[in-house]
Design a protein around this nucleic acid. Structure first.
Lengths: 144, 144
DNA sequence: TGAGAGTAGTTTCAAATGAAACTATAGTCG
DNA sequence: CGACTATAGTTTCATTTGAAACTACTCTCA
């Protein structure tokens, strides 16, 4: 009848995710002076160029307010270039500046390294099982 | 070279955990008028009685400030009883009130049900693989 | 003993968050 | 056209958060 918090999946995921986020936030902040929302935006713009803020919202699972403020911060540091879309003057077209690309080039291997270190103790089959299970859970949640 | 955020483990865990937390927070709020920190405290006091706030901190992975405030809220709603420890007057001894136990009795099956629904699409072996992988990651992180 | 160091818990303050209101532009249809 | 609805993005405001300072008590050891 009693429920053990330490075995309760939402609790475990929350603690784990928050620990990772804190560590990564610290890493990104000291190395590059950016926040996690900013990193996510850079990650999206490293793959897709001249996209709108709403596109970034969809890809980063962040709300508009967070994205708007993170973009403002990146613009202030000239890591991003923003133009108004000529086709639809409500939309912006965002892309990395040269400085933004430089940070992207440095931060991606760092992020990958962090992830690898984290997964280092899992056997390949265990990693696959984890990513597979996460996919199923994600699917369950996005399908309401 | 480009990194896909959707496949980046810390990102996936963060989004998943935040989605679950939001849903559960909504559930606990509408049904019982409590927050997630408050629920965690109730969960601990359902298993351990007459423990200190610091004990609760350790078991819930929440910081002192959060715990202090959540306890204040629960005391205000008379779901908790707090005494000063006679052995060490700095420490409190916390336990659920009768009303607190009643909520505990209702919320535990609800939480379990939520977890089961979440895991419903995973085969038993997949669930085991998930919990096993989470244990390994937890171990990696608590060991610095 | 009693001064200094340490621990339990609370309060304060500044930063992060997100819902709701707002601005500006675009599309619809009478 | 021109009113109405909808969308992109920003700003405002109230709430949540956690680091640091603070209070109160305990422990150590000279």
């Amino acid at each position: 009848m009693p429920l053990d918090l330490a075995g309760f999946l939402p609790y475990r995921l929350s603690v784990l995710a928050n620990t990772l986020s804190r560590e990564l936030a610290e890493l990104y902040a000291t190395r590059f002076g950016i926040t996690i929302p900013q990193w996510r935006i850079i990650a999206v713009l490293g793959q897709h160029t001249d996209v709108s803020a709403d596109f970034v919202c969809a890809r980063t699972a962040m709300d508009r307010v967070t994205v708007s403020r993170a973009i403002a911060g990146l613009l202030a540091r000239r890591l991003l270039i923003r133009r108004v879309s000529p086709a639809d003057r409500r939309c912006s077209q965002l892309k990395l500046s040269a400085a933004g690309h430089r940070i992207y080039g440095e931060i991606v291997p760092l992020a990958r390294g962090y992830e690898s270190a984290l997964l280092a103790e899992l056997a390949p089959a265990e990693r696959d099982a984890l990513t597979h299970a996460l996919s199923l859970l994600e699917r369950r949640l996005t399908a309401r």
